[in-house]
């Protein structure tokens, strides 16, 4: 018996070591691109275009590169950050207002219209965006809103509760809250709407947090909307997602094999992902739960 236990312990230890080794190896592989990104920030043009390439930079050109990128005439990082946050806030506030109301309606007021609309909403849940974008684009061009300086085409849908996933999240949540809470508020003289606003909405904090995180990631990642609804040469109105491209095309004069100044691109990339990383590490637990819960990314 003793020997069996000893064998098991020895076996467990070996398993743990193998486990550690594999995890460390995987982590190294995952971190290589980050490491290379940071290394490239320190290089100069010679070191990134092929004549004297090495993994580690030979000199330190970090400050030089940073000041070039930051002071480049077409690059306005604070503007891009502001623009991205402007879209994020408008989208998120709109979707929270409209989808929480709809989710509450679907959860708490069963009627024929309710089940009919619910089926209709489910039916379009997995529809590819390509089917919806063409008429929307047509309308925006006809209304002369395509290049709206306040990005109307990018956030207007959010104010009409068009995110069915978020409606479902709210609906599921409100199902789990007993009716008696809202009833109690109504006995105290509140109408349906104030009962919702004062009692139910504050309780759905977790869904609100999830929505904020999903929309932060979603807005930051969005390339489709900005490339369609922001004029290509309008450098004041670009968003962060487009900021790296400015340096990728720095020496692009139309020929197919132009030189890419990776040292500048790397600096711009690092700057562009800093806000996401800060947000991620600040809200890590919520962040992971929200993303795993919905499992989505465009």
């Amino acid at each position: 018996m003793e020997q069996v236990k000893k064998f098991h312990r020895k076996h467990d230890l070996r398993g743990k070591i193998v486990n550690y080794v594999l995890l460390v190896l995987a982590s190294i592989f995952v971190l290589i691109p980050f490491f290379y990104l940071v290394m490239t920030c320190f290089k100069d043009l010679n070191e990134v275009t092929g004549s004297t390439v090495t993994l580690f930079p030979q000199g330190n050109h970090f400050l030089e590169n940073l000041s070039f990128v930051w002071n480049y005439e077409d690059y306005h990082f604070f503007r891009y950050f502001f623009n991205t946050m402007f879209i994020f806030v408008l989208k998120t506030v709109g979707i929270l207002l409209t989808c929480s109301l709809a989710g509450y309606a679907f959860a708490k007021f069963p009627c024929k219209l309710n089940s009919f609309m619910f089926t209709a909403f489910i039916a379009v849940l997995f529809l590819p965006g390509e089917l919806l974008n063409i008429p929307f684009y047509e309308i925006m061009v006809n209304l002369n809103l395509r290049y709206s300086p306040i990005y109307v085409p990018i956030w207007i849908g959010a104010w009409f509760g068009t995110d069915i996933t978020i409606i479902f999240l709210f609906r599921q949540y409100f199902f789990s809250i007993p009716d008696s809470l809202a009833e109690a508020a109504k006995i105290d003289g509140a109408n349906e709407f104030t009962a919702f606003l004062r009692v139910m909405l504050p309780l759905s904090r977790s869904v609100i947090v999830t929505t904020i995180i999903l929309y932060f990631v979603g807005t930051y990642n969005d390339v489709y909307g900005p490339s369609l609804y922001i004029r290509a040469n309008d450098y004041e109105h670009k968003v962060i997602a487009q900021s790296v491209g400015i340096f990728e095309n720095l020496y692009n004069y139309g020929s197919r094999d132009f030189i890419v100044p990776y040292h500048y691109v790397s600096i711009a990339t690092v700057i562009s992902i800093l806000p996401v990383l800060v947000f991620f590490f600040a809200a890590q637990k919520n962040f992971v739960e929200s993303l795993v819960g919905s499992g989505l990314k465009a």
């Binding site: 409209t98 989808c99 109301l101 709809a102 509450y104 309606a105 679907f106 007021f109 009627c111 219209l113 309710n114 609309m117 209709a120 909403f121 379009v124 529809l127 089917l131 919806l132 974008n133 063409i134 008429p135 929307f136 849908g157 104010w159 009409f160 509760g161 068009t162 409606i167 349906e192 709407f193 919702f196």
Partner: peptide, 21 residues
């Protein structure tokens, strides 16, 4: 009451899903 709460998304559904399809 259902309509009161869900009016905006229903309009949104017609505008941003039903019509485009």
């Amino acid at each position: 009451v259902f309509l009161m709460f869900a009016a905006v998304p229903i309009v949104g559904y017609l505008l941003f899903y039903f019509y485009p399809i």
